[in-house]
Nucleic acid binder design. Structure first.
Lengths: 148, 148
DNA sequence: CCGAACTGCTTGCATCTGCAAGCTTAACTG
DNA sequence: CAGTTAAGCTTGCAGATGCAAGCAGTTCGG
């Protein structure tokens, strides 16, 4: 008799790997950015002023500050984000979404949505996808970086 | 108006990151192996003869052959798996689950199950967890490495 | 029987990531 | 006000991973 929670988490991690592997290659070829880079842009897009301090961004992406530093550098060269410091607190270095970044993330989301739809192609009723979305929503609810 | 498939996949990837981050540290401290190493052992455990060729193992773990080679090496030194070649086909190098490996994966699964249960602590009805498990089951169904 | 194509595995290289240490700046304490 | 502590960011180092190349062994076609 297998534990239900165990089975859920196993399947969750496994399906996540599966989907990412299926999506990642084509996605980055089309848009020149990785899925994680899109996530970064989406976090900025969602922020009130389209900008966030690096530490805050790290929390929302479930990653470390050093990773954010290293992700932002090449994206800055591409002009997708820019750097901005705070007048009050000279320690803060905001990552700011540029217009080019906003355009890019919009295009990327479209591609991503198509790939997501393909994951559920046939065999899935709209109602079931909605159900899955709501259940997963409870797992991410209340976390700092809740997209969607 | 957000697309439901998009939302589902976003939440799926995000919750996967979240859960892995929450679980990984304690897990590897307790058992001396990573979650991915446990997955490798579980694949062997599930195989008919508790052994698999490296390429097959790679497919089931959704990873590359080189990763399997590099994961197996240290685990062999720990005595959790051993290497065995095929009499008929000298190219094949099976990864074989040892008794020590079987013991370890059993212990690890127990810890993992506790951590999985903790993910759903309060706010989740057993029925909901089951529902989530079944929906995710449809995503992994038919894939070569379906655990659970 | 022999060469060509293929399969399974390993290894060099590049990339991504986290941790710990270090730097700069801010806040707190006596 | 000075010294200490803390916060934000970056960087050196180590570990994990994928791709492409290379090697060994098998299979297929003539």
């Amino acid at each position: 008799m297998t534990d239900t929670s165990l089975q859920s988490v196993l399947r969750l991690l496994q399906s996540s790997q599966l989907i990412e592997a299926r999506i990642a290659g084509e996605f980055s070829c089309v848009h020149g950015i990785s899925v994680n880079e899109m996530f970064l842009l989406m976090q900025l897009e969602q922020a009130p002023l389209q900008k966030l301090p690096r530490v805050e961004l790290a929390k929302r992406l479930n990653t470390s500050a050093s990773t954010v530093t290293r992700m932002a550098a090449p994206m800055e060269k591409l002009g997708l984000v820019s750097r901005q410091s705070d007048e009050r607190d000279a320690r803060l270095a905001f990552v700011v979404l540029t217009e080019a970044g906003a355009t890019r993330v919009s295009e990327a989301r479209t591609t991503f949505a198509k790939q997501a739809a393909y994951v559920f192609r046939d065999r899935w009723e709209p109602e079931e996808i909605k159900q899955l979305s709501e259940l997963l929503g409870r797992l991410v609810a209340g976390t700092p970086g809740d997209l969607s």
